[in-house]
Design a protein around this nucleic acid. Structure first.
Length: 714
DNA sequence: GACCTGCTGCGGCTTG
């Protein structure tokens, strides 16, 4: 395939002294050079996907033409800054200019590009939106002669509101171009590629190039019971310290507060025993400059071991070099996330990836095991959940289109929305109803036969917050003297004289300036982890819960290596379930009946559990539920009857939903623009995005109860 | 009892 590349690019490849082209690179070179297809390149992290896309693109495109030829879209500014150096290095051989275009990029360089639009541009979806909305002429000058759009980390967009917006933006960009614009998506291995194909273009124009080879994964599972403690057990911290102190390690504790706790405690232990000082925390609330310093340290340092306690900020493709080992504290909610995290270790060739999982309760241990066994046995990764009718994103795009074109007739607007591939499942009548509602609520105004932005619409579209479709909370800046160290939400725990952990250090709050949203701190000796108010929407797929049941019931199940304590925790949990007759893991479910209450284990995914709870509540059945255990508590009674009553709710589902959405405004809190929709569509959005009624009903109609009566000991 | 992501244009200021 090497011969297909242009001479300057071949020279570049020779200068790199690579052993040869990777499989994904060869496949991509052939398809980019010899077909007109859109492509999805899927392979594990650090397998050279960026080069796989850019080597043939740079070989094929004629950069002497006016206008930007290649648009690279990334979900993160940090990734753009990272990739800029690699792409620029490639482009040097061709004298092709590369420009960063995002909110923090140089205005001067952007202006220079507008005057002489050429080469490659690296951009975020929000910056594309801003440009189309505020200055369409600029977008036309820059992007009306595009040949390729490259979407990096496309899996980060799939199934999300931001992904729908991006799909619509790609459609709007294609409308500026007369010629064909090819889309190339770069992806980690994911469960299904239909959504990725859908984003790239019309059906049958997109080919998937998949390199399924992963690295060997070495795991060990440990168990340290936390019980009712609000902190991690001391024994866990001590064991963890011995595990990490001589290695380069990422620790993922699933929460920002716990990341701080881990970083501070390891650091303190290390100080006591005379170990190294390189213990850091890295998450969204740590000051950006400090985060960049940590990333640089990890990337450039060869000699020193280090440990970074982090959240999903270090899960995506930012290059932090080689890590020896990954530690996960308690289970991830998805297999996709687990594999992505594990993939950060052993990045040099031929090294295996290493994972230690520390569980602090038996159900988390079981869920972690289930994720691992499912992946190892079947290579199972969750399919991508998506909304067929994203009415809220359509509303946002309707306002954006009116801003983009200043004015248009109602028919023009409806047409622009209905032909947009992002909204292909929403009918013309539905679009019409939403557009008319926007006029009734002064979001749009009808003047001289044309629609323009109305008084209420101005308030929304004039804010710089308009360009993104996701919500954000307000945080208070935390600073010591005048140096910023990060930010935290203001909760009732945040008071003067309180001590908090942030950026792997302990601080005492000495002042809170509410109007300025500023908290001043000084160093302290001791403190509690900060409280971040979580919204709690991590969803576990039903397949994982079914695997958990299987691990509890089946004899001679194959398990990865477990510590003695972990073995014992699993043994105890299996004992609790040994008397249930479970043969079909899809439908047989345990019911434990006691004198006053009974417990039903659904072993279902989070979304179905939450839908079941909705149905029980609507049927007037008192209950409580816990997702990790997928356990429901009822008063002792006839369970068959409970199932029947819950299923009956479905006959009159819409009126129950209407009641729920009317009485509980938080039902729609997942959507930034949803409350501007006609009420009917707010209900439909809640029905589709929050719940899975089809799945829940299917489960209730087939579930088979295995009952065990537990009587009090005499 | 999750996590993460991004941001125009303009006026007026300081600094090299």
């Amino acid at each position: 395939m090497f011969e297909l590349l242009s001479e300057p690019i071949r020279r570049y490849v020779r200068e790199q002294h690579w052993d040869g082209l990777r499989p994904i690179q060869s496949a991509s070179i052939q398809k980019v050079m010899q077909s007109e297809d859109n492509l999805i390149l899927a392979s594990r992290t650090a397998s050279g996907k960026t080069e796989a896309a850019f080597l043939p693109i740079l070989s094929r495109v004629d950069f002497s033409e006016a206008g930007v030829q290649v648009l690279y879209i990334s979900p993160l500014i940090a990734l753009i800054n990272d990739q800029f150096f690699r792409v620029e290095e490639l482009c040097k051989h061709l004298d092709v200019p590369v420009t960063k275009w995002h909110g923090e990029a140089s205005q001067t360089l952007k202006n220079r590009l507008v005057k002489d639009p050429r080469g490659v541009v690296l951009i975020t979806p929000e910056s594309i939106e801003a440009m189309l909305v505020n200055s369409e002429y600029k977008a036309k000058g820059l992007f009306s002669n595009l040949k390729f759009i490259v979407i990096d980390e496309i899996h980060a967009f799939l199934g999300t509101d931001r992904g729908k917006q991006l799909q619509s933006l790609i459609f709007r960009l294609r409308q500026l171009n007369k010629g064909n614009v090819r889309v190339i998506g770069l992806s980690a291995t994911i469960g299904s590629f239909d959504q990725a194909k859908d984003m790239a273009g019309p059906e049958n124009t997109t080919k998937i190039l998949l390199d399924p080879n992963g690295k060997e994964i070495e795991t060990d599972f440990k168990y340290f019971e936390q019980g009712n403690l609000s902190e991690l057990p001391l024994a866990l911290i001590k064991d963890l310290y011995l595990n990490v102190c001589n290695n380069k390690v990422l620790v993922f504790p699933n929460a920002r507060g716990t990341a701080e706790e881990v970083a501070v405690k390891l650091h303190r232990l290390s100080e006591k025993v005379g170990g190294h000082p390189h213990y850091y925390s890295h998450h969204s609330c740590v000051n950006k400059e400090w985060r960049e310093y940590i990333e640089e340290f990890a990337k450039n340092n060869e000699r020193f071991p280090f440990t970074i306690a982090c959240t999903s900020t270090l899960e995506l493709g930012i290059d932090i070099g080689s890590v020896d080992k990954v530690v996960q504290i308690n289970a991830t909610h998805s297999i996709a996330g687990l594999i992505q995290r594990i993939g950060r270790s052993g990045r040099r060739n031929n090294e295996t990836s290493k994972l230690s999982l520390y569980a602090t309760d038996p159900w988390n241990l079981l869920q972690g095991l289930a994720c691992m066994t499912l992946f190892k046995r079947e290579k199972f990764v969750e399919p991508i959940e998506y909304t067929e009718k994203p009415y809220d994103i359509l509303l946002h795009q309707a306002l954006a289109l009116i801003r983009q074109f200043s004015e248009c007739t109602q028919d023009e607007l409806i047409h622009k929305l209905s032909v947009n591939a992002a909204f292909k499942h929403i009918t013309v009548d539905e679009i019409k109803e939403i557009v008319q509602h926007l006029q009734q609520t002064d979001m749009l105004e009808f003047i001289g036969g044309k629609l323009i932005i109305g008084v209420e619409g101005e308030k929304i579209t004039n804010s710089k917050d308009f360009f993104s479709v996701f919500q954000t909370e307000t945080y208070f800046r935390v600073q010591v003297q005048d140096k910023p160290i990060g930010e935290i939400p203001l909760t009732h725990f945040t008071t003067v004289d309180q001590n908090i952990l942030l950026a792997a250090k302990i601080w005492k709050i000495i002042d809170i300036d509410i109007p300025a949203k500023k908290i001043t701190v000084i160093p302290a000796m001791d403190g509690k982890k900060p409280v971040f108010a979580g919204s709690g929407s991590g969803e576990v797929h039903p397949r994982i819960r079914r695997e958990m049941l299987k691990l509890l019931i089946e004899d001679n199940v194959e398990m990865p290596p477990l510590s003695d304590d972990a073995k014992e925790a699993i043994r105890q949990l299996r004992l609790e379930f040994e008397y249930y007759k479970i043969e079909d893991f899809e439908v047989d479910r345990p019911l434990k009946v006691q004198v006053k209450e009974m417990f039903w284990y659904s072993f279902q995914g989070t979304r179905i559990n939450s839908t079941l709870s909705f149905l029980f509540k609507a049927a007037g059945i008192d209950h409580e539920w816990w997702d990790v255990e997928s356990k429901f508590r009822f008063a002792t009674g006839n369970f068959e009857l409970i199932v029947q009553q819950a299923m009956k709710v479905y006959d009159d589902l819409d009126s129950h939903l209407v009641k729920k959405v009317l009485n509980d405004p938080t039902e729609l809190s997942f959507s930034k623009f949803g409350h501007h929709l006609p009420f009917k569509y707010q209900v439909l959005l809640v029905k589709d995005k929050r719940y899975d009624f089809a799945g829940a009903m299917d489960f209730l109609s087939t579930v088979n109860i295995s009952q065990v009566n537990v009587l009090p000991q005499p």
